[in-house]
Amino acid sequence: MFDVSRDAPLPPLPGVGYKPQHYADIIKNPDPVGWLEIHAENYMGDGGRPIAQLRHLAERFPISVHGVGLSIGSEGDLDPDHLARLKHLVDWLNPASFSEHLAWSTHDSHFLNDLLPLPYTETTLAQVASHITQVQDTLGRQMLLENPSSYLAFAESTLSETEFLREIAARTGCGLLLDVNNVFVSATNLKTSPQAYIDAFPLEAVGELHLGGHDEDEDETGAPLLIDSHGKAIVDPVWSLLDYTLERSGPKPLLIEWDNDVPDWATLAKEATRAATALTKVAA
């Protein structure tokens, strides 16, 4: 039913972040989901159920491997052991796509389990570009880099995020993963325009879109502070921003991320159906 030949790219259909509790439902009734995304680090054990399930799913669906632990934005070197583990996974699975984040999570051998921000300067541009080149050379494939959710700004930044990502893609040949919810969260938090961000984004480099839910809070001044929690349904303004994006980018592989307070399959499939509708609108 799907093209799962290992060299095919992700299809421009809705995908979901795979959760083991949905395994039986996905096998039985995946509609309208056309591909699955996994977090690389959850499949770096030596064997057992996670690996067996992944092998089984990979026979049926195109798989996107999404890393959360490579720390591409580190000031220091990438962890060679972790890069080797990633290469092992990508080599045996041969996924349709590999992506990571414009963020750091490891410092001084300590992994902090969060996607932490970096300033956008010529120095960090050179560091990130060098790390991406190292990853692409090691894996022997192109990777996608995802725009972060921002809660604050660095006084030292000299480049905008879209300028930074455009230059990274140009220097390394990597693709970009555009998280539309992250654009909305960052724009709200930093009082900028999400549409202007999309207008400035190098959409020609985008290989995948992400959508997810966020939490609403306020900072100490009463200004809105949105938190990228992946723990609830996608809100209407983010669906609208998706339409705005798709009108400019055309159909792209479109992922629904729901990582916390994971709902039942029917609820998740409903979000995927809404994503399918949005894609259909621009397919013609």
């Binding site: 809660y151 700004a153 660095f154 006084a155 938090n189 009082k191 502070l225 938190i227």
Partner: peptide, 29 residues
């Protein structure tokens, strides 16, 4: 206090905004 050089959009120090990361790290671990 949050490290100096981290700001909210008005250029003021990022206080609760830095706490988002503190909270994410502590809760996830």
């Amino acid at each position: 206090p949050a490290p100096t050089g981290l700001q909210n959009p008005d250029g003021a120090p990022a206080t609760k905004r830095f706490d988002v990361y503190r909270n994410n790290v502590a809760v996830s671990l």
